[in-house]
Design a protein around this nucleic acid. Structure first.
Length: 677
RNA sequence: GGCGAGGUAGCUCAGCUGGUUAGAGCGCAUGAUUCAUAAUCAUGAGGUCGCCGGUUCAAGCCCGGCUCUCGCUACCA
């Protein structure tokens, strides 16, 4: 297990249709960076790989909406992302991008090899095609009427009015967004990776061979494998991406999920000509740092690809994190509910490490977590300033005051001094154990305990009192304090790299290796330290209030956007309207449909008859509370079977801004069977 | 509904293959202290470990059922 020679660390490629936010950082980049720095300090051979994921349909949509090319879109975000990572101090060895030539070549070759060796299966299927634009349409390029709520601007994959996920073929009156024409069904050929064939192998490799993976990761994999794996298309009809390198595949590109993980390989190639030792030597340990949304790709699909190719190593672990929420709500790029890294860097200059600290201390390692600005402030003021910064300041101020900044020689150590120094060694072992098992928040807490140790030692020793009676003893005390400070620069270096650089400056120290952690003679007697500045500064309430206000403004803007009524639909004739027979009826029976979340089976007295209607309202109404309710019902809608029950008609519901459904019924009771017109 | 993850002090979280009075940080209370960015240090209060059964000499940890939260998935005429 542990006789690896080197470690390859990959971090999920951020999708280049937006900047990076704190959710990405907490879940992937901060832990990956801590781990990479830790291994480097231990003198291990490390490659830390990153890059932008620049293909896929959403980018082409964004480009179209903004009237620019997809390349313009990815150039813009790739640069923002790369720059903000660099300023934030994520220590990638290489940060590449999937639109790079090296990547196109690598992904192309990878596909070609599997293709030549017959690792794919070919399938022909029918998909919507725009004859004028002469291209197949991705789901997002098709709009039509949502079969559920009647919204005429539903997309082929989802209706944004009611949140339903759809297939393009579900849409009524589908239209191409490229030309506005009605698309036709046309045959198209694609290549599929037969994941089902890899199931026995995956079962063996993960379920038997990697029981040590985090429970959230292992559980997800087990769920997918037990649920049965299906062949998955590796190509798409699209003009943005890596062209499929076989004859007769014009207008087809590699599906983005297929090319993106190969981006790790391409980036490594871009970084070093000696890339094969990182990818093909069994003595290399590969780790994927990702968020939970990526588990299936990195644990099932990409390994299956690598296995199919045959010459690559497989990940040794995939320490996936859960999600970070922001002030109680899910982070959302489209709703602008996020703290963006590039904005943070502008608004909190010099506080890169503060964000790293807070995101690590509250990392979503075992479950979703919440980032709040109040917590951010508290952790800065109560932990970084009060414990770590304060200890350093106390130690250095006293050193200046008593010795003009020259490290005093320690005399004979008393038991209390020895115990204190011994605790550093013991904390070192604890930190290592946590870091080695990817428990970063625990590791950080232990590092902070070392600063606590310093504060306690100072408080117990009271050098400011002893100095009046025993100057020799104070020299030993202060020497010990300075050794603790020097040790802190090592133990915190993976977590707070900028701050520890600064602190090494105060201490006038060179960079130290992890192995020196625990030493009690890092600073020699006679060594001169500098006048200290503050390591951290307090964050005032007003700064936090500004950030909270900013989010509240976003929330208000979102609410305003949400209450905007959908635009009026096209006119219809009176004839069209009069075809619909809408009546008032009364619900006389109601029960939940078994094995569904949303469906209620209702019996309605329509005045005409008593009939059964299945309605998707179970999330908003309990069966008991709807009995006796008068409702409007479309009685001449084609009957349809749902979950084995014939539904004869449709209850009219008002959909509120948040999607909640409310009955539409007469203000005063009317006779059942009354027409609505 | 199915599958996965989670439900432990006011808040954020630890609790390894079951074993004496269930832990930490923050917050709170009290005391000590002044070298320090009113920071620090000590002590204390606070938990029926989601609920109900079961296995066991012994369960937060194992088994069964239920319930709530999050994710994936099915249903939405």
């Amino acid at each position: 297990m542990s006789n690896y020679k080197r470690t390859l660390i990959t971090s999920a490629l951020p999708y280049a249709n937006g900047p990076v936010h704190i959710g990405h950082l907490a879940g992937v980049y901060v832990p990956a960076d801590i781990y990479a720095r830790y291994l480097r300090m231990k003198g291990e051979e490390v490659a830390f790989i990153g890059g932008s994921d620049e293909h896929g349909v959403p980018i082409t949509i964004k480009a179209k909406n903004e009237g620019v090319t997809p390349q313009d879109v990815v150039d813009k975000y790739h640069n923002i992302i790369k720059d903000s990572f660099s300023r934030f101090g994520i220590s990638f060895d290489v940060y590449s991008r999937t639109s790079a030539k090296v990547h196109h070549d690598t992904a192309s070759e990878f596909f070609k090899k599997l293709y030549d060796e017959g690792k794919f299966i070919e399938k022909t299927s029918e998909q919507y095609y725009d004859e004028e634009a002469k291209q197949f349409l991705a789901d997002r390029y098709i709009v039509g009427t949502c079969p559920k709520c009647g919204n005429e601007k539903a997309y082929g994959d989802q209706c944004e009015a009611c949140g339903t996920s759809l297939n393009a073929t579900d849409l009524i009156n589908p239209k191409s967004t490229l030309s506005g024409n009605i698309p036709v069904m046309k045959e198209t050929k694609h290549w599929y990776l037969p994941l089902d064939q890899y199931e026995p192998w995956l079962r063996e490799w993960i379920l038997e061979g990697h029981k040590e993976w985090k429970s959230n990761v292992y559980g997800q994999c087990k769920s997918w494998i037990d649920g049965g794996l299906n062949p998955r298309a590796v190509t798409r009809d699209l003009d943005w991406g890596v062209p499929v390198p076989v004859d007769g595949a014009d207008g087809k590109v590699l599906y983005v999920w297929f090319d993106a993980p190969i981006g790790y390989i391409s980036a490594t190639k871009e970084w070093t000509a000696d890339w094969t030792k990182w990818w093909k030597d069994p003595e290399t340990r590969m780790l994927h740092f990702i968020g939970k949304d990526n588990i299936v790709f990195h644990c099932i699909i990409f390994p299956a690809m690598l296995k199919a190719e045959g010459t690559y190593i497989l990940p040794e672990n995939v320490p996936a994190n859960e999600f970070l929420n922001l002030e109680g709500d899910k982070i959302s790029t489209s709703r602008n509910w996020a703290v963006w890294l590039h904005e943070y860097l502008e608004e909190f200059p010099g506080k890169e490490d503060v964000l790293k600290y807070v995101l690590t201390a509250n990392a979503p390692e075992t479950k979703d977590n919440d980032f709040t600005w109040k917590d951010f402030q508290a952790r800065n003021n109560n932990e970084l300033v009060a414990i770590l910064g304060n200890f350093i300041n106390r130690a250095l101020v006293l050193t200046q005051k008593y010795y003009n900044g020259v490290v005093p020689a320690a005399g004979e150590l008393q038991d209390v001094d020895k115990d204190t120094l011994a605790q550093i060694v013991s904390l070192k072992a604890d930190v290592e154990k946590s870091l080695d098992t990817f428990r970063f928040r625990e590791a950080l807490k232990i590092a902070m305990d070392m600063a606590r140790l310093g504060n306690k030692y100072l408080a117990d020793m009271e050098p400011w009192k002893v100095v009046k009676t025993d100057e020799e003893r104070v020299k030993t005390i202060m020497n010990t304090c300075l050794q603790i400070a020097a040790n802190l620069t090592i133990v915190f270096a993976p977590f707070l790299p900028f701050t520890m650089n600064k602190l090494r400056g105060f201490l006038n120290m060179d960079h130290l290796e992890w192995s020196e952690l625990g030493r009690t003679d890092i600073l020699l007697a006679g060594h001169k330290v500098k006048e200290p500045e503050l390591l951290f500064e307090k964050i005032e309430d007003s700064v936090i209030e500004t950030q909270i206000q900013k989010l509240q403004d976003t929330k208000k803007a979102n609410e305003m956007a949400a209450v905007t009524a959908a635009p009026q639909k096209e006119n219809c004739s009176y004839d069209d309207f009069s075809k619909m027979d809408i009546r008032v009826g009364t619900i006389i029976e109601a029960e939940k449909v078994a094995k569904t979340k949303k469906l209620l089976k209702l019996k309605i007295d329509t005045g005409i008859d008593q009939r059964t209607v299945v309605s998707g309202i179970a999330e908003y109404y309990e069966p008991e509370q709807v009995i006796g309710q008068q409702v409007c019902i479309l009685v001449n809608l084609e009957p349809r079977e749902l979950k084995g029950i014939l539904s004869q008609g449709m209850i009219l519901m008002a959909a509120d801004a948040d999607g909640a459904l409310k009955f539409v019924s007469p203000v005063n009771a009317v006779k059942n069977g009354s027409e609505v017109k």
